[in-house]
Amino acid sequence: MISFRSFKIVVAINAAIAVLGLSSASADEALVAVATNFSNTAKLLKEDFERRSEHRITLATGSTGVLYSQITQGAPYDLFLAADESRPKLLEQSDIARAGSSFTYAIGRLTFWSTNQRDLEFDTDGYLQLGEYRSIAIANPKLAPYGLAAIEFLNAIGAQDVVDNQIVTAENVGQAYALVATKNADGGFVARSQIAKTEPHSEQRVWNIPSDMHTPIRQNAVLLKRAHSNSAAMAFFEYLKSAESQQIIFSQGYEVE
């Protein structure tokens, strides 16, 4: 039981801290939902942000579709860094996110990645080459924009056979990456950011899909309404728009506006 005297002391100390601008009350925590393809980059942003601020960020990753449905069911996220622009807009429309807060924090690049030793000669003949693969991993196009972009690309090059017979569907790009990394799939469509850091390797082939061969993967962030009084969420949301964060995002294989 705190006596009235010690209570007064605590109040006085708190007031002093507040005046000095060191108040612990101003250091907030935010829970940020992050699309899987962006998770490594988000970790770097979190580190950079926490060096500059006393706020703390916790990241939760999943496929955009999964995170979206969690949010519509009241999941306690403050920010949503999606892999598309439609779901953040939907959250604005359904009044779960703050209207007008959605913005593009990164533009994703789709990459075909293979550990198969076969030489990759992609271009207009890409379809024939892909036909030699047993299995090609993509993220579930219903849930993950990179999966949808992969399907669009395959349709654009007329590889309907590949779509029908060789596609294996992963839960998200992280799992698609794992299926290729463990050689269970011969190749897969992943985010360029996922392999930006992998060492060049004689056994692996990487091909960045021309960005005009699928709908641009505009990744939007949105501020969720429950974060209205969370200064950590506000600060991190503003930080995402800063030149510093955009530089980090660019360095990880994304394009920025």
């Binding site: 496929s63 579709g65 999964v66 449905s69 519509t72 299995s135 991993a137 579930n140 219903k142 849930l143 596609i167 294996v168 569907t169 992963a170 839960e171 299926l179 799939a185």
Partner: peptide, 22 residues
Amino acid sequence: GGNIPGKTRVLSIAIYEHVETL
């Protein structure tokens, strides 16, 4: 499994996908 219709998309996976696509 790879979520392949008719080969590896079993009941539990189909339910999961139905839920996640609302």
